[in-house]
């Protein structure tokens, strides 16, 4: 299976909503790529500077209830258009989480304490996340703080979506 990973963008805020990920006024764009410049445009989070922090990232680590609000799949698309295909959070809103897997992207929950530990150790550092879907391990690493691993726990649906690339190919062939 393909390797997942990338540099981590830390967003230290609960309840980051889909309006913050991609404002509604851009929902009239007709392609996923066109959303790229507007991703996280309205987000105000401690220490977050969009111009400095967003470029070059492949993953987000955030807090509780990530992706709440609207059903817009434009939210995962806007992240993907910026190279981000992984979000790790304490919890997710249902539709956002499903949209991520439907697009073959990873939305994984980690316990409150582990997320807190990630922020403590790695926030503000260049941190690399590696996702190993064979051994089901998440590995965070920075030069300053070394490595920290967490077990990845996914259900059958989630694994199938990551393997098949998303719900569309799976369901179109099956139903």
């Amino acid at each position: 299976m393909k390797q997942l990973g990338g540099k981590v963008l830390f967003l230290d805020k609960d309840d980051i909503n889909t309006d913050e990920i991609i404002p509604a006024k851009y929902l009239n764009e007709d392609s996923k790529k066109a959303l790229a410049p507007f991703c996280l445009e309205d987000l105000v989070a401690p220490g977050f500077d969009r111009a400095r922090d967003l470029p070059g990232k492949g993953a987000i680590v955030s807090r509780a209830n990530f992706g709440c609000g609207s059903s817009r799949e434009h939210a995962p698309w806007a992240l993907e258009a910026n190279g981000i295909r992984i979000v790790i959070a304490e919890s997710f809103a249902r539709i956002f989480r499903r949209n991520m897997y439907n697009c073959g992207m990873l939305a994984a929950e980690l316990p409150f304490d582990f997320i807190a530990e990630l922020f403590r150790r790695f926030s503000g550092q260049v941190t690399e996340l590696r996702v190993d879907l064979d051994s089901m391990v998440l590995r965070f690493e920075s030069k300053e703080s070394g490595a920290l691993e967490a077990p990845l726990s996914l259900g059958g649906f989630e694994l199938a979506m990551l393997r098949s690339g998303g719900w569309l190919d799976f369901a179109a062939a099956r139903y």
Binding site: S70, I95, N99, F157, A171, A172, Y175
Partner: peptide, 17 residues
Amino acid sequence: GVGTTDLEIAILKGVCA
């Protein structure tokens, strides 16, 4: 409420997970 991919399959196949 669902996202666009779920909607797409709903339109095409009349099912949703």
